[in-house]
């Protein structure tokens, strides 16, 4: 990431890790506000989706960095689009389940 420095690299990744904690804490709060009733499998799906999303971006930019321009853009476009669709599907499932549980209550 920072080829001229030995300190900035670990600092950068530690900062990114800290942002992940903030992100999940924010998502937890948002899910509570929208009464999504998150349980273990819903968290597993949401976490899995986020992990795949991050991996796709990392993979695509690694390819771009290795001068594999076409492969990088195709990977980002193909896997990224599938993930966006999967994300929209996951959100729909979460909202539908919330509505159903509210109707039962």
């Amino acid at each position: 990431m920072f080829p001229q420095s030995t300190v900035l690299d670990p600092l950068f990744w530690m900062l990114l890790g800290a942002i992940q904690v903030l992100l999940f804490a924010g998502v937890n709060q948002w899910a509570k506000e929208h009464q999504l009733g998150m349980n273990w499998w819903k968290w597993a799906l949401a976490g899995g989706w986020w992990f795949s999303f991050v991996l796709t971006i990392a993979g695509a930019f690694t390819l771009l960095g290795e001068n594999e321009g076409n492969a990088g853009w195709y990977f980002l476009g193909f896997a990224g689009t599938l993930l966006v669709i999967a994300g929209a599907g996951l959100l729909k499932v979460l909202l539908v389940l919330r509505d159903k549980s509210q109707q039962l209550a």
């Binding site: 853009w73 195709y74 476009g77 990224g80 689009t81 966006v84 669709i85």
Partner: peptide, 16 residues
Amino acid sequence: SLYLFVLTVLVVITSL
């Protein structure tokens, strides 16, 4: 082509 690929991605995401 890559241009058509970009157009397809845009259309697919906008369809949501």
